[in-house]
């Protein structure tokens, strides 16, 4: 039985599962367990160059995680708009690796196939990976063309003047070129993909332990060395 919402202060099955996947990801971050130490000071939000365009600020995001509101985070625009500038990470007085936490949240959302408020980010990411797998190096022309073909044809045509300028200054490679060791790289990627699956936790069974303070998640992470 999955429905458990009748138990006061209990955590839903979805929430428990999301936390499990997310915390598994956090274990792979050096010093990831520092997420426990958040003092809600808001340095991250104040430093973030794009927090004004987020629906949930980085500080709120950690508060929501504590409160057992993973689903709200999964459905936010915030995790997709982070530009990976790392200013929050370097300024956090508790040493929380916020940018890496954002990556972990993105991976969790993709794993559980949440419908994104910013689907273009995943589309670009998938095309990027497709491009890398096909050639071993990124061919920017192909990436941008495919992206705008999917997203916005008008913008694709809008890119023509820029493309001409780039052509004139010999800044465009017309055709992608495969690296020599393309086969070998593909084998590396295939193997790493298999290993990645190994890292995913087993789906959890609902347990009555997930109630009260347990619900907001005692972090049972081993302390990793490093800063």
């Amino acid at each position: 039985m999955a429905a458990t919402s009748h138990i006061p202060f209990s955590m839903s099955h979805t929430e428990a599962e999301l936390r499990q996947i997310f915390l598994e990801q956090v274990k792979q971050i050096p010093s990831g367990e520092r997420i426990k130490r958040c003092i809600q000071c808001g340095s991250c939000t104040g430093s973030c160059p794009v927090s004004y365009a987020m629906d949930i600020s980085p500080r709120e995001l950690i508060a929501l995680f504590r409160a057992g509101e993973m689903e709200t985070i999964m459905k936010s625009r915030t995790i997709w708009i982070c530009a990976s500038c790392y200013v929050c990470t370097t300024r956090c007085p508790s040493g929380i690796k916020i940018t890496d936490i954002m990556y972990a949240l993105k991976r969790t959302a993709m794993e559980k196939k949440y419908e994104s408020k910013a689907p273009q980010v995943q589309i670009l990411a998938n095309l990027f990976i497709e491009n890398l797998m096909a050639y071993g190096r990124l061919h920017e022309g192909t990436l941008i063309r495919k992206y705008y073909m999917k997203m916005d044809l008008k913008k694709l045509f809008g890119m023509i003047p820029l493309a001409r300028k780039m052509y004139k200054t010999k800044r465009i490679a017309l055709f992608p070129k495969k690296i020599k060791a393309h086969e070998a790289l593909s084998r590396i990627i295939k193997k790493a993909n298999e290993i990645e699956v190994r890292h995913l936790p087993e789906p959890i069974e609902y347990s009555p332990e997930y109630v009260g303070y347990k619900a907001v998640g005692e972090l049972e992470l081993e302390s990793k060395k490093g800063n």
Binding site: Q25, Q28, R107, A125, L132, G136, R137, N193, E196
Partner: peptide, 16 residues
């Protein structure tokens, strides 16, 4: 050499 994966890959699959 091959593409480093940039920040894009990191947010999709870590081990890969």
């Amino acid at each position: 050499w091959n593409c480093c994966g940039a920040t894009v890959y990191m947010s999709v699959k870590e081990t890969v």
